[in-house]
């Protein structure tokens, strides 16, 4: 295996770990942050597969925009 393949497999493994962690988190805020980490790792996978356009979209939407939307949704519905 080349170095790139090892790095690729490591990121894929981490992706599964982060996905399971997102589901098992007790705090909603921790789950949102963990989901944002999942998006960053997905963007790394896309970049390793040389799909830079998709990686850019995933990083910006998944890690930036949807985290902000989730945060505002959590802040709006908390305590109701």
């Amino acid at each position: 295996m080349t170095t790139t393949e090892i790095a690729y497999l490591a990121v894929l493994l981490l992706l599964v770990v982060v996905a399971v962690a997102t589901v098992l988190m007790r705090s909603v805020f921790a789950a949102v942050i963990s989901l944002s980490l999942f998006s960053v790792l997905t963007a790394v996978v896309f970049a390793l597969l040389q799909a830079v356009d998709v990686a850019l979209a995933e990083a910006v939407i998944g890690a930036g925009l949807s985290t902000a939307f989730f945060m505002s949704a959590v802040a709006t519905t908390r305590g109701k």
Binding site: V52, D53, A55, L56, A57, V60, I61, G64, L65, A68
Partner: peptide
């Protein structure tokens, strides 16, 4: 790489 969609989302993140 990139384009209108990625750049537009970046601008909206800037507003956020």
């Amino acid at each position: 790489p990139g384009g209108g969609f990625q750049g537009g989302v970046s601008i909206s993140v800037l507003v956020i």
